[in-house]
């Protein structure tokens, strides 16, 4: 059975592309055949985060316009043979593709992949509509900031309106020190405001910047705590979203954060 998951946020710069890349890598490492699709036509970046920017010959728009075969547009990851990238066009506009064409494309990809992860552009216009068109469910990425949470709320409403199942929330750039000082909204605050089940929490980490510099997602790094957090999240996706309900009930902030980050080794690394 195949599933198409769109990674969206409303606000830009909260980590959609990094999330898509790392979940894609982690799911592929766990044995699934994965295609990550860059739906940000005109501003592609998923190729850069994956370090595949020099391998692009054809793109999503060229495939949709019949200028190449799907197999020609797909780029196999150089490290993980189960992982493929379908890059966006860089010099076209969002209107180059329609929601109908996206649904057709996702249907095609489902013949060959277990998971299709769609990296949604920021905003709520045509690019967003295209990105959710073929999706079976959504992951909403937010950060513990006012503006990101507000936009996440708007996006959650639009996902409901599009009659997709209830999305899951990924809280990115979580700064435990600030949370403990009471200077940052904590996980439970955010969940209370957005009333959306949690997929996981990713701590703010230098690893993410370094790995973007290298084009080498942290999910590949066996000893990276953040990589571990992504791998745990991928396991939850690979299992059943519904099984997470019990975990969502957990009390005790730091313990539950540690559980969601998925690393008891986190404290060892920092201290």
């Amino acid at each position: 059975m195949s599933e198409c998951i769109v990674i969206t946020s409303g606000k830009g710069g909260v980590g959609k592309t990094t999330t898509t890349a790392n979940l894609g890598v982690a799911l592929a490492m766990q044995g699934a055949r994965v295609c990550v699709v860059d739906a940000d036509i005109g501003l592609r970046n998923l190729d850069v985060i994956l370090g595949l920017e020099n391998r692009i010959v054809y793109d999503l728009v060229q495939y949709i316009e019949g200028k190449c075969r799907l197999s020609q547009a797909l780029i196999r990851d150089k490290r993980e043979e189960n992982l493929y990238l379908l890059p966006a066009a860089q010099t076209r506009e969002k209107t180059a593709v329609s929601p109908y064409q996206m649904r057709e494309l996702i249907y095609e990809l489902k013949q060959d992949f277990h998971y299709i992860l769609v990296d949604c552009p920021a905003g709520i216009e045509q690019g967003f509509k295209n990105a959710i068109a073929g999706a079976d469910r959504a992951i909403v990425v937010t950060t513990p900031e006012m503006s990101a949470i507000r936009d996440a709320d708007r996006i959650i409403g639009l996902i409901e309106a599009a009659e997709l199942p209830e999305p899951h929330l990924l809280i990115n750039r979580y700064r435990d020190g600030m949370v403990r000082r009471g200077d940052m909204l904590n996980k439970d605050d955010i969940l209370e405001i957005l009333a959306t089940p949690l997929l996981g929490v990713i701590p703010e980490a230098e690893d993410i910047i370094i790995s973007a510099n290298r084009g080498y997602p942290v999910s590949y790094l066996p000893n990276s705590p953040v990589g571990g957090a992504y791998r745990n999240m991928a396991r939850r996706i690979n299992g059943d979203f519904d099984n997470m309900e019990s975990l969502n009930q957990n009390k005790g902030l730091w313990n539950s954060v540690k559980r969601w980050i998925g690393i008891d080794s986190f404290s060892e690394v920092n201290g």
Binding site: D207, I210, L221, S224, V269
Partner: peptide, 10 residues
Amino acid sequence: MRNTLKKFFG
């Protein structure tokens, strides 16, 4: 954390 990456990449 950074050491992990440094070790990995040299």
